[in-house]
Nucleic acid binder design. Structure first.
Lengths: 231, 231
DNA sequence: TAGATTGTTAATCGATTAACAATC
DNA sequence: TAGATTGTTAATCGATTAACAATC
């Protein structure tokens, strides 16, 4: 029953969130049980990996039978912290910020957007979803009067560091950082970086790696020192 | 001179993109050289890791001196495939799609948005940046007449799989998938998933792990089976 | 040459996998 | 009991790190 939460490997944590997503879908489809092999197939993993990951939740399956979907869902939610609700603020109401605020799925995971801030006077006062954008200057005051757990940082790169340190001193526990800038994590504040350009680069790399470059039409061709050595 | 491109570990690939970002900043600031220790400090890594990563580019540094910034930039761009240009289409022009289309930084990495598609008649014909949104039905025709390398998939979850298989048969090499659904990668098509809800969950988890739950104000308290076992 | 920093080795650490005993 | 599937072990694989020889 003692959940060894602090021992869960980070690779497992990421997959637990994927399992959760899949399990909730299964739940809606009416099945009460799953087998590790079935989850594995759906997610492109090995069944032994699924079992190993799920064993981090404790003894949650039944040998010879499988796992009860509901049990898994609540166990994973408990471990990930999504059985609680999190108050989240949005800082930076540009294209990306606006998109994130409307992102379905945050809400059902327990993340509640409680305020949105921007420093642009043209944006202050406008609506983002049900919220009115506040001036960034009001950030600290807001954080004093309301509990704020997390911040989504979606400001331009050049503003990110300054805003991040303000967030830090206002007592927020974590930042989801979309700015292409390294915000240092420390014991007071946890930072989870998301770099969209980097994801596109990763994709481009794996395409080059698999298909070679020649595949890509009239793109600058340098087959002589790139394609041939691939074995 | 032979670049062992296919041997680069995936963890290194991700960091190479980070180095590139940092190096381009350094380049703008006028420095011609960097040391591994300096890059390491900026990115929160160990210097030995930086050197090991960069050694995947070949012999690119000078002992006793450091690395020439320009050399690194072009070597990394070459390896990542961003010294070429990539034709990218956007499928799904919702909030997220619109935000991504305006994302500064894609362009300077060589990713050119050449078309945008949506199945919603209300969106078809509207502008997204300089592009006019096309009907999703025109996808295949477009792919036949123009070279398309990559697709950004930003449609709702329930539409994602169907659109993905159309993309696949239209000969596109890679998909950056923002839909919370698993799209299988195979040798014909590479898929890079980006799950924004998952990133927020990861953040929540590491906050719980570091601070414990009690830190979070009046949130449902279950210290008895969660906080105490943390050593 | 003396000082500095890379490139690389060997050791450590962590994550994945196959296999199978435990048990429903 | 027979069949099935978990939970867990041990082996493998990959990534990180410290240390240092090579060399600018």
């Amino acid at each position: 029953m003692a959940k060894p939460r602090s021992e869960i490997p980070s690779a497992t944590v990421s997959r637990l969130a994927l399992y959760l997503r899949e399990l909730q879908q299964i739940e809606r489809s009416g099945s009460a049980n799953v087998r590790s092999g079935w989850l594995a197939e759906r997610l492109g993993l090995k069944d032994s990996q699924v079992r190993r990951d799920l064993s981090c939740l404790g003894q949650v399956g039944q040998r010879g039978v499988g796992y009860r979907v509901q049990d898994l869902v609540s166990a994973i939610q408990n471990v990930l912290g999504t059985d609680r609700s999190w108050n989240v603020i949005l800082v930076g109401v540009g294209n990306l910020g606006r998109a994130l605020s409307g992102y379905r799925g945050f809400d059902q995971l327990g993340f509640r957007l409680v305020a949105a801030f921007d420093s642009d006077p043209n944006k202050v006062g406008t609506k983002v979803g049900a919220l009115q954008v506040q001036d960034l200057d009001h950030l600290e005051r807001f954080a004093q009067t309301q509990r704020v757990d997390l911040a989504i940082l979606a400001v331009p790169a050049n503003a990110a560091s300054a805003v991040a340190s303000r967030l830090q001193s206002s007592g927020i526990a974590g930042i989801l950082n979309f700015a292409p800038v390294v915000i240092p994590s420390n014991s007071a504040i946890t930072v989870q970086p998301v770099d969209l350009a980097l994801e596109l680069q990763r994709l481009a790399f794996s395409v080059v790696q698999r298909h070679g470059i020649a595949h890509l039409g009239e793109i600058a061709i340098r087959t002589e020192d790139s394609l041939e050595e691939v074995d």
